[in-house]
Design a binder for these strands. Structure first.
Lengths: 191, 191, 191, 191
DNA sequence: AATGAATGAGAATTCATTCAT
DNA sequence: GATGAATGAATTCTCATTCAT
């Protein structure tokens, strides 16, 4: 079971979805195709299990890092969300990329949306706890925007433009993006 | 040839990637498989051409809408960027979705990253023209963050959570996210 | 083992030959595949044993019913043969059908031919005991024709056209077919 | 197309259903598997087409021989039915046997039942034309019994006990079986 | 005796691509 | 240029059978 998932992950990161035939997975896993089908009902099920495990891992990193700053102020919390997402993306960037770039089956992506929503829930809980400090009235929308934004920016940086992470301004600026959006007192000099 | 691309787009949006075999594309296009291979060297080339055309269309919408507010103030420009991205995603959402969710070939996604970068360039030009109004020192980073953010938020809304677009707060809040990040005078109470 | 045969029969009648894999048989029988192979050398052997048991049951019904009219006259005996065959086919019609319609292995059918021959022997014995009443000189051929005929007609009725059995003429006519063939005095006007 | 059917027939008669894999059929036919699937949607479709052709051939022989004695008397007609069935079974006995002994799919057999019914229709028409000579009141049942009987007896002889055909009594006796059943005046000396 | 995980040959089917006409 | 029949490697999945425990 574990060896099958590990073999699949390995093939996926090396050769992409194309190379991951069930026979090849079995071969790399050092088991027979028959055994593979004793543990997983289909090829898709293997990939799905792998995605689930990956998502769970990422979410766990995110959840833990966020929990660590539950009591901190807005700025610290924002910074934590950003750092958490970056860390979560570092769990297995190559595999992450393959999942998002090469998954031909509808439904695979839904598993990713799910961690998005679960992340939103965590963030919303934090925001609601400090509602009086928050400018946005709709905290549900705010959580959606924050999570989507930080995930996108993080993803783009970690996966596509790793040099962005070397920019010392990166984390501060992403944090600013969040904080200035959320913080009550602030705002552009209207008019 | 146009009929081949049109047929491919039609099959892709109707039946997804699975249904798009070269024989079926040729059939729907009303040509023979042989002819198909006279115009495109491979199946991937057809899909690539289709993606290119789609991206070009999206970028053109974005470019045009942005140009229209080239002289406007920050708030208006931000709102324009947001609206532009939403419009761009409405060019052919079904096809857009298929491209991003079902394409098992490496490299297809890179074509999408490209419009991202071209969009960034446009935005950076705008930002630089009003540098003195801008809080961020690194306008390249700012452009990256803005474009990535607005694209992600727009994409998530248009493709995955269409009900978000019905929320009257949506565009204002996304605009706020951009403007408060950019505007000089603003900032959290802290400083 | 009985439970294995019972499980096989159950699967065969419910799901047909396709569903009867050794693993499924073992599962339904409540034993392990390994145990299954301790009792039967192969899957074919299980099916063969099942056929044998089924044929034996059918033959036993036939034999018993025929014996009951051993002393009766020709007409009664003929009617008994017919009734016996009908009863024999009612032993387990579903299983009977599966055996004859879905068994892809050479040699399975031979087991059915065997009861045919054994039935012929019984009938021949009866005919010989009343040789002087019989028109046919070749009682071996007569027995073959009778058994084959009654089996075919019965089979077609029970298995394929059950409504035939509701026809009150059915048994009398089949009996007539036999008796008129056998009886000495009778014959077409011609001679 | 023809070569595929011919190859299938050849494999079926030589090695039985087991040996007839699509790859093997294609190989023997001298075409590629791909071509095979260009002509037939599935393996079953090939076998079905083969059965249909075989049944049609058999039925045609039967129909023609019966037509030839349409005007003849009962005895001659009966003899013709018998001879027709024997000839029909000689069309391709080996293939016939395979079809009836090794066809694992339900529905294949139905195609055989169909020629049975079509044969019954022909026979019934003949019987009705000479209704006044006939003893049985129910000519539908009579046709069913005759066709089923002659088919069974013929089949058993041609396929399973070829030596029966060498018996000079065989055809006369089968004819007697039919004629004595049908002919009006005759009958066992009741009581 | 019993177990059931492991085996792996083999089956049906697909589909991008070619090339003779 | 256009055609479309032919190709055949490759894919997913099954299942009778084995054998170490």
């Amino acid at each position: 079971m574990g060896s099958i998932l590990r073999a699949t992950a390995r093939i996926l990161t090396r050769d992409g979805y194309e190379g991951a035939s069930t026979n090849r997975i079995a071969e790399v896993a050092g088991v027979s195709v028959g055994s593979l089908y004793q543990y997983f009902p289909s090829k898709d099920a293997i990939v799905a299990a792998l995605i689930d495990a990956h998502c769970e891992e990422m979410f766990e990193v995110f959840r833990r890092e966020l929990a660590a700053v539950a009591g901190a102020d807005l700025e610290a919390a924002a910074r934590a969300v950003v750092a958490a997402q970056i860390e979560a993306h570092k769990v297995n960037p190559k595999l992450h990329r393959v999942f998002l770039e090469q998954l031909p089956k509808v439904g695979m992506l839904k598993r990713f949306h799910e961690i998005g929503r679960r992340s939103e829930a965590l963030v919303r809980t934090y925001l609601e706890a400090r509602r009086e400090e928050m400018r946005p009235a709709n905290l549900d929308l705010a959580a959606f925007l924050l999570v989507t934004t930080v995930e996108a920016v993080t993803h783009a940086a970690v996966i596509d433009q790793p040099e962005r992470l070397d920019d010392p301004d990166f984390i501060p600026e992403v944090t600013a993006l969040c904080v200035r959006y959320l913080a009550k007192g602030s705002g552009p000099p209207r008019g």
